[in-house]
Computed example of a mutant assay.
Amino acid sequence: METKRSGPIGRPRGFDADEALERAMLVFWEHGYEGASLANLTDAMGISSTSMYAAFGNKEELFRKALERYTEGPSGYLPRALEEPTALGVATAILAGTVRTTTRPANPPGCLGVQGALTASDSGQEVRDLLVAWRNNGYACIRERFQRAVDDGDLPPRTDPGLLARYLTTFGYGIAVQAASGVSRDELKEMADAALRNWPPS
């Protein structure tokens, strides 16, 4: 008597790649690139290491995909902030988004783009370089927006857009580090408000 097969033997169990990537992002966010072991990642993703390699590539490639997800998701406030009509509005929205993202209870504290590879060894150099480029890209976008503000008369003509963008991004990354250290959302909001009190008048 023949037995009907419902499907091929040994077929890997399906999984939601989008959900798996979300979970990997959270592991990298919490532990950093080197601190996130393959066991941590595959356990959180609910898949085997074989399935992880097949779907996402090696650990570095998985991190790159996780950073892309972070950029479009938790860090997605930046492109929206750049659309604010004034430079002060841009700065306010960026710092508010930073405080909100780095202190959200459902997520790890701090910023994946800041803490992801601060202490990586030589083997993590490419990831360090990736995050340096990620931060520099954010800075460049803000600098360009502030240059437009100078050209439009929204910022004083003698304003240095690069210096102002560097000030804002440095302060924002400082907020992320403080958040990772357990500083409260309310205190970080007060810090952001204080940083904007001396904003250049239009």
Score class of each variant (00 low, 15 high):
A180L: 10
P157M: 06
A179Q: 03
Q178R: 11
F146T: 11
V114S: 06
A179I: 05
A180C: 05
A140S: 15
L118P: 01
V132F: 02
Y173M: 13
T159S: 07
N107R: 04
T98F: 00
A149S: 15
L118R: 10
R166T: 11
A179D: 05
L112S: 09
L118N: 09
Y173D: 15
Y167F: 06
C141T: 12
Q115M: 11
A133V: 12
C111M: 08
R135D: 10
L155I: 11
Q115E: 14
R145E: 09
A176Y: 00
C141I: 10
N107E: 11
T103P: 04
L168Q: 07
E144C: 06
L118S: 13
D122Q: 06
R143W: 00
A179S: 12
G172M: 03
P157C: 08
S181V: 03
N136R: 08
L130N: 06
F171W: 01
T102M: 02
G153K: 04
T170R: 06
G138S: 07
W134N: 15
V150M: 03
L112Y: 03
G110C: 08
G138R: 05
T102V: 12
V177E: 08
G110E: 09
G182N: 08
L131N: 10
A133F: 00
A180D: 09
V127H: 03
Q115L: 13
